[in-house]
Design a binder for these strands. Structure first.
Lengths: 233, 233
DNA sequence: CGCCAGTTTGACCAAGATCAACGCAAGTGG
DNA sequence: CCACTTGCGTTGATCTTGGTCAAACTGGCG
C-alpha cells in the first residue's frame, strides 16, 4: 500500500508574490477583517507546490484566498495522512509552536495570504475584535479535527466517503453537486482508506444512483438525503 | 460491537463544590497562573459522573486539578469515541461555540476548576500573559488532535496501543511504568479499536516481554525502546 | 460464597488492504 | 498526426487485520 504521491516541484523561484496592501481580498470570511490584509503578503503557488514543509520554522500562518491547499504528514515508510483540505477563506498553519509537524502543499494552483507571527501577536494585543476572530478560527479547526477523529475512529468506508462528499458540498454551499479538486489518493489519505476502496465506494454510490459523475472530479447528487443518512448513520 | 459502557450516575446533587478563592492549586502547569483561580469554581466529581453532556450550553471551560476526565461522543447506535483523556493540569471544554458536541465524564473521582466564559473573556482582554497561555492551551489541543488523526487514520492496532502507552507515560513523566485509570473499553474507544483487540495486543506485548502487568491497570515497561519503536514505526 | 463487572482468550468472519491488470485521457516526440 | 508514455482511475481476485460472538477467568463486594 501507500504508493507514490505526486512529487513536488520544489522550485521556490516560481513563487510569484506581491504585497497585498492595497488589494481587496474577495473571500466571504474575510469581510470586515481588512486588518490582516495590512500585515499579510499575498503569494501564488502552482499545483503540488510546497507551501511549507515538516521541520520548517513555524513563523507565520496563512489564509487561503483562492484554490485548494492540503495539510499533511508523511511517514518514512510512505504512509501519509492529510489532516485537512483548505479552501478560500480557511486559515491554516497556526498549529506549530516551533517546528512544523505538518507540511502544506497546493492541491490546485492557489493564492494564499502569508501572515507573520510577530505582527499577528501585535495585532492580537491591540485589536480585540481581531483577537476574537482568530480565537474563533482556532476553535473551528479544533472542532473540525475532533469530528474527523470520530470519522477515522468509528466510521465505515461508505460512511467516510459519504460524509466527505456532504461536508465538501456544504463548505462550498452547493447542494446538488460537489467538485473534488484533489486526487483519489488525496481523498484516501484524508479518510484513512486506500485509493481502491475510495473508488469502489464511489462506484457503489453510482450503481445505487446516489450520485452521478460527469467526470472523475465532479460528483452530482442524485439522492442527497440518502447520502446524508449514510454519512450520519 | 460496541456494547454497554459504564452507565453514568446522573445524580447532580452529589457534586461537592466550593469556591476556590483562597486555595492554591497544586499542578505544575498552573504555576504563575493564579489569575484563573480567582475566576474559577472548584468542583468534585465521582467516578463515571457526567461533567457536561452533548447538547449542554457551552458557557464555560475547565481545568483538571486531580483525577482523570474523558471527553467523548456517543452515536445513537452505540458507537462511541473518546477524543481525549485529561489529567491534572489539562484544560478541556473550550471546543464549543454554542452547544456542546462532546460530553465530559470523570474516569476516576476528580476535582476540576470550572471557568465561566464571560469572566474568561474579560481576563483575556486585560491580561495578555493569560491570553497567551490560553492560546497555547488551544494550540496544544489542536496539535494533540492532529497527531491522533494520524494514529486513527494510518496506524495498526499494535502501533496505536504502543503509542498510547508511551504517550501516557510521557505525560505522567514516568519512564518505567504507566497507570491506566480508564477501562479497556475506554482505551478501545479512544484508539478506534475493540476491547478484545486492545486486550490481545497487550497480551502480545506481555508475551514478547515488552511490558509486565502487576494488575490490569498498571503496566511496567520491560523494553521501552522496542515499544517506542513500534509506536513510531 | 456467589454475583457482577471488567478482562482475557479462542474460533470464526468480514471489511477493507494488497496485488495485479486494464482503461483512459493528456502530453511528448518522432 | 499518430505511436508511445505517463499518471490517474477503475475493477477483480485474494489475503490479512481486526471485528464479532461466545465462553472462561478474575477480583471486589454484599
Amino acid at each position: 500500500m501507500y504508493r507514490q504521491h505526486a512529487n513536488l516541484s520544489l522550485d521556490a523561484a516560481s513563487q510569484v508574490w506581491q504585497q497585498a496592501s492595497a488589494e481587496i481580498v474577495r473571500s466571504g470570511q474575510l469581510d470586515g477583517l481588512i486588518a490582516i490584509e495590512r500585515i499579510g503578503t499575498r503569494m501564488r503557488f502552482f499545483r503540488d507546490q510546497e507551501i511549507y514543509a515538516e521541520g520548517d520554522q513555524g513563523t507565520c500562518w496563512f489564509k487561503v484566498i483562492s484554490g485548494t491547499v492540503r495539510i499533511s504528514k508523511l511517514l518514512a515508510d510512505g504512509r501519509r495522512h492529510i489532516t485537512e483540505f483548505c479552501f478560500a477563506g480557511d486559515s491554516f498553519g497556526f498549529d506549530a509552536f516551533e517546528e512544523r509537524v505538518f507540511s502544506a502543499e497546493a492541491v490546485t494552483d492557489a493564492t494564499v495570504l502569508r501572515l507573520p507571527r510577530g505582527a499577528t501577536e501585535r495585532l492580537i494585543e491591540e485589536d480585540p475584535v481581531f483577537a476574537r476572530h482568530l480565537r474563533g478560527e482556532m476553535l473551528r479547526s479544533l472542532d473540525a479535527a475532533q469530528h474527523r477523529l470520530f470519522l477515522l475512529g468509528r466510521m465505515t468506508a461508505c460512511e467516510r466517503v459519504a460524509a466527505f462528499l456532504v461536508e465538501l458540498s456544504e463548505r462550498h454551499d452547493t447542494r446538488h453537486r460537489v467538485d473534488l479538486p484533489m486526487s483519489r489518493c488525496d481523498i484516501a489519505d484524508h479518510l484513512g482508506l486506500t485509493v481502491e476502496t475510495v473508488c469502489r465506494v464511489l462506484s457503489d454510490f453510482k450503481r445505487r444512483r446516489l450520485i452521478a459523475a460527469p467526470n472523475a472530479h465532479r460528483m452530482e447528487f442524485l439522492d442527497r438525503e440518502a447520502l446524508t443518512a449514510i454519512a450520519e448513520h
